[in-house]
């Protein structure tokens, strides 16, 4: 990001309101770090350096504190992801029910490896640890929505839904 853009980084009205609410929830300003990072993720889609510097200045925290926290948690992303970000669980119950095959199918269909994004920016895929949905394995998340009891047919419908531009919660519709 060039300097001009960087200077424009600021919470919009909705984020600002959420930011003020978050501050009231905790006895220390520092404790609002996770909620404020979520607000920043929602508004900016990722947490590049400029955004983290902005967050650190809003919370009066040394930048290194903010950067090291972001590195620690897997759900905060420094780089933008695909429009549809797909996480496939690779823990035991999902492995037993075919999650490795599921990931293989996705890799083949999308032509990318876990950790990568398609060139058109539509898809990114990633492995995840147990998503707390083992009874309906194999499981994946597309953005914030769980897709459970996956089969090949369901997977195909979901990808079709993505290509048809449907919202991540209505891909099977």
């Amino acid at each position: 990001m060039d300097k001009q853009v960087a200077e424009k980084i600021a919470f919009n009205e909705q984020s600002e309101r959420r930011y003020q609410e978050a501050l009231e929830m905790y006895p220390t300003k520092e404790a609002a770090l996770l909620p404020v990072l979520w607000i920043a993720m929602d508004q900016f889609g990722a947490l590049p350096t400029e955004v983290l510097e902005y967050v650190s200045s809003r919370l009066d925290l040394p930048p290194v504190r903010v950067f090291s926290a972001v590195e620690f948690y897997t759900m905060f992303y420094r780089e933008p992801r695909g429009r549809y970000h797909i996480q496939v669980c690779r823990n035991l119950s999902c492995t037993l029910r075919g999650s490795e095959q599921l990931m293989g199918l996705l890799e083949g269909k999308l032509g990318i490896q876990p950790g990568e994004t398609t060139e058109d920016g539509n898809f990114s895929i990633e492995t995840a640890e147990c998503l707390g949905s083992c009874g309906t394995a194999p499981v994946m998340r597309v953005n914030d929505t769980y897709y459970e009891d996956l089969t090949i047919e369901k997977l195909e419908k979901i990808i079709e839904g993505c290509l048809g531009g449907r919202s991540s919660s209505e891909l099977l519709g």
């Binding site: 404790a31 996770l34 090291s68 926290a69």
Partner: peptide
């Protein structure tokens, strides 16, 4: 009652990791 959303880290289920994370730190 306040909901605090975690951000992906098994260790934050350990009670003192949870508290550190609640305070805005690494868990």
């Amino acid at each position: 009652v306040v909901i605090h959303r975690g951000a992906g880290a098994y260790i934050c289920g350990e009670e003192t990791g949870l508290i550190e994370s609640l305070e805005g730190k690494k868990g």
